[in-house]
Simulated assay, not measured.
Amino acid sequence: MKIVDLTHIISERMPVYPGTEEPKLEVVNTYDKNGFKETLLTMFSHTGTHMDAPAHIFDKKTSLDLFPVEQFVGKALVIDCSDLKEGGKITIKYIENVKEKADEAEFILFRTGWEELWGTEAYFGEYPHITEEVADYLIQSKKKGIGLDTISVDCISDENLILHKKLFAETEIVVMENLTNLKKVGSGLFTLCALPLKYENADGAPIRAIAILEDR
C-alpha cells in the first residue's frame, strides 16, 4: 500500500484567492512562558486545499457538517489533462477516453499540471477548467465529488460561478480545489480520503486529502 498526500501546506505566505486575506498562524502560548505551545489559526474557510459544500452557493443546500462521513471517502480516478494550455477547456473527451474507469469512480479528479505554478502569480491566471458538458456528466452519474489542482472549478474571470451553481443546484456533490501531487497517483482507481474540518454550517473547509494506492 502507498499513501500520497494531495494537500498543500497551510502557511502565512501561501497563495490565496485574489481579494482574500492570507491565513495567520499566531503562537499564543509558548514553551518558555506556558510550558506548552499553542497556535491561534485565523483563515477563511476556502483556504488552501479545501472543499466547497453546496451551501457555499445556496443557503438552503447542505453544509459539510451535515454530510455523512461516507461522502468524503470513496473510489477515485485522476484524469490527466496536463496537455491543456492556458485557458484550455477540460471537455468530455477526457472522460470518454477512460469511460469505464470514470463510470466506476465516485470521485473524478482532473490533473491540469497547474499545481506547478503554486506560489506564483501565474497560478491565478487562465487555468484550464471543465465545461458544462463535464458538469452534466458528474451530475448524471451521481458522483460524490470533483477535484482539481487549480483554485476554482470555474474560470478566474467568471464572477457568476456558473459551474459551481450548476453542480450545487442539481446534486449533492462536493468540490475540491487546490489539490496537489496528482501526478504521483497514476491512472488507476484508488481510494480517496478527503476529510474537511467539522464546524457548524460549514460552507467550505480545509481538507487533508490523501490517495491510498493498493499494490499494483
Rank of each mutant, 00 (worst) to 15 (best):
A122T: 13
A122S: 12
A122E: 15
F124R: 03
G125M: 01
E126R: 15
H129R: 08
H129V: 15
H129G: 05
I130D: 08
I130T: 03
T131Y: 00
E132M: 13
E132Y: 03
V134Y: 02
V134D: 14
A135L: 02
A135D: 14
A135I: 02
Y137E: 11
L138S: 09
L138V: 02
I139D: 10
Q140E: 15
K142D: 08
K142A: 05
K142Q: 13
K142F: 05
K142Y: 12
I146G: 04
G147E: 02
L148F: 15
T150W: 04
I151C: 10
I151K: 00
V153C: 13
V153Y: 07
C155E: 13
C155Q: 11
C155A: 12
I156E: 04
D158E: 07
L161T: 03
L161I: 12
L163Q: 06
L163A: 04
L163V: 12
K166C: 02
L167F: 07
L167Y: 08
F168S: 05
F168N: 09
A169R: 07
T171H: 07
T171K: 13
E172R: 11
E172Y: 05
V175M: 09
N178T: 07
L179K: 09
N181G: 07
L182P: 06
K183H: 14
K184C: 10
V185Q: 04
S187A: 04
G188K: 14
L189P: 04
L189D: 10
F190L: 07
F190R: 12
T191H: 02
L192F: 05
A194M: 04
L195W: 08
P196H: 10
Y199H: 09
E200A: 14
E200N: 13
N201L: 08
N201C: 06
D203F: 14
D203A: 15
G204W: 02
P206D: 01
I207T: 06
A209S: 04
